[in-house]
Design a binder for these strands. Sequence first.
DNA 1: CCGCATCCCAAATGATACTG
DNA 2: CAGTATCATTTGGGATGCGG
Lengths: 119, 119
Amino acid sequence: MTRRYHCPVELTLDVIGGRWKPVILAHLKEGVHRYGELRRRMPGISEKMLTQQLRELESDGLVTRAVFAERRPRVEYSLTAEGASLGPVLQLLYEWGERRAGARGVAFAPLPPETPDSR
Amino acid sequence: MTRRYHCPVELTLDVIGGRWKPVILAHLKEGVHRYGELRRRMPGISEKMLTQQLRELESDGLVTRAVFAERRPRVEYSLTAEGASLGPVLQLLYEWGERRAGARGVAFAPLPPETPDSR
DNA sequence: CCGCATCCCAAATGATACTG
DNA sequence: CAGTATCATTTGGGATGCGG
C-alpha cells in the first residue's frame, strides 16, 4: 500500500476505497456494532469480505475491534477518532446517494427479517 | 449497474467508486480540462483507464465531453450540474487525504515537467 | 457466535503498440 | 492530440468447509 500519490484524493481512496469500506464505516458511524449485526445490515457482502475489510480498516487505524470471550462470545466494532473524522465524508456520500436514488426512482432493498437468536 | 442497494452509500459508490473516478472528478472540479491535461495530472493512470472512466462518468451524467475538430484537435471535459453536486464530497475527500498525509509525513509525488508542445 | 483457510472465477486495472 | 486494440496481470469477490 505504499504507493506514490499525486493527489490527496488518491491517498484517501487507498484507505477507504473499495466496494465495502465506506458502507461499513457508514454503519459504524451510527454506533458500535457486532459482527453479525453488520453482516445482516449488508446482505450483499460475504463473510470473508466483511472480515477482511474490517481487519484492513483496523490496521489502518479507523476501526477498533473488541473481543469479548464470554459464554456468549461476541466481537464489537467501533470507530476510532480517526475513523470518526470521516463522518462528514460518509454523511455526504449517504446523502448524495439518497438524492440520486430519489431523482431516479430507485428504491432500496429491505433488510432480511430478524431471527430470534440474532441477539 | 442495476444492482440491488441496501444503503444509499452503495449507490454512490457504484457511480463514483473505483480507483480513479474521484480523482478525475476532483481535477474537473477545478475547471475544464483537456484529455492530455488530465493524463499529465494523473501519471499513474493508463490511457485506457482514463478514457474508460471518463466515458462511464459521461454516461452516468456527471461529465460532459466536448470535441473540437479543429486544425489542432482537442477534447475538453467538464462537470455537468450533477457532477458539480459532488463538489463537497470531493472537497472532503481531498482534505481528509491532505490531513492524513500531513499527520503521517507522506509527501506527494511531483508531476512530470511540462513539455513544450503540451499546450 | 465469529471467524479462518482454501480453491476458484470474474472483474478491474495495467502495459504496450498502433491509429484517425 | 486523443484515443483503440490487444494482451497480461492484479485484485475483488464467492462458495465451501473447518475451528476456537
